[in-house]
């Protein structure tokens, strides 16, 4: 890269958080006059697992999708890997996209391709690798996420919900991304699988130095895997911190979320 975009926003970001791998600044998103997110600020630190919680329909998926550029925003900026995403050339954008892995809420596997081919799509797109190596890598990813190699030749319509999630995670990990976006990764999984999933995410973070941006409702995930939790409500990030911080928060929704019956049961367990 020859010229690094040196913008006021960039310098500002390195002051507030030099470790921030992604910062969202003043994000406003709305659909037909109704605002879903308004002036939202959020920093994701390098190497952390950030959990996003919020009532259904508060815009967690919208936040994730607008960071990825899939939803039009009214205003706001994203600084990703130290670059303002608005001011990127095509090549820089590609280089950044190559470092992102995304697990969509419903998997979004390509229905006409087998699981193996699905995992190989990003590899094919960005690199020229021998087919044998791609097969081995794809099987390796598949087993890393806890699927058996038998699933490799199945098509998405032949998989269960949990298997779809895992296969989609394997695809998201295909290029060993640095920043991983997960939209409700453990919903629809049995508790044991969900726990394995959390362990997997933590392991990947520890070994690969992944940063994880995870939308989740799973209190287990929140307490086991997440370093920090951001609560989304009233169109912005209402509170951010670890479990203990949030439990002390007086806001009624946060209070009932983190000290409700389910949450208490969670504490009894630990």
């Amino acid at each position: 890269m020859t010229a690094t975009p040196q913008t006021p926003q960039n310098t500002a970001s390195s002051e507030t958080g030099a470790r921030a791998i992604l910062s969202v600044k003043g994000l406003t998103v709305g659909f037909s006059s109704r605002l879903v997110l308004e002036n939202l600020d959020l920093d994701v630190q390098r190497g952390e697992i950030l959990g996003i919680v919020g009532a259904s329909g508060t815009g967690k998926s919208v936040l994730l999708r607008s960071v990825l550029g899939l939803v039009q925003r009214q205003s706001g900026q994203f600084i990703m890997f130290g670059h303002n995403t608005e001011k990127l050339s095509r090549q820089e954008r590609l280089a950044i996209e190559r470092r992102l892995g995304v697990l969509f809420q419903h998997g979004a596997l390509f229905s006409s391709l087998s699981v193996l081919q699905n995992i190989q799509v990003p590899m094919r797109e960005y690199y020229t690798l021998p087919q044998r190596l791609m097969d081995e890598l794809a099987i390796s990813k598949l087993e890393l996420v806890g699927l058996s190699p038998d699933a490799a030749h199945k098509f998405p319509s032949e998989l269960s919900g949990g298997m779809i999630k895992r296969a989609a995670l394997a695809r998201a990990l295909a290029l060993d991304p640095q920043l991983l976006f997960l939209d409700e990764p453990t919903s629809g999984l049995d508790p044991i699988s969900a726990e394995e999933f959390d362990d997997l995410i933590s392991t990947l973070r520890d070994t690969l130095g992944l940063t994880v941006f995870m939308v989740t409702h799973d209190l287990d995930s929140l307490s086991q895997a997440c370093d920090r939790i951001a609560v989304l409500a009233e169109r912005r990030v209402l509170a951010i911190g670890n479990m203990n911080d949030l439990q002390k928060n007086p806001h009624p929704w946060i209070k009932s979320y983190f000290t409700g019956k389910r949450a208490i049961r969670q504490w009894d367990k630990n």
Binding site: E136, S140, L142, L144, D150, A152, T203, D206, T207
Partner: peptide, 21 residues
């Protein structure tokens, strides 16, 4: 030390030869 668990995890994959049609 950062790579130990990565190697351990990957070492457990691809143990059986893939079934090719």
């Amino acid at each position: 030390p950062d790579h130990v668990s990565l190697f351990e995890a990957v070492a457990e994959t691809n143990l059986t030869a893939p079934t090719t049609q």
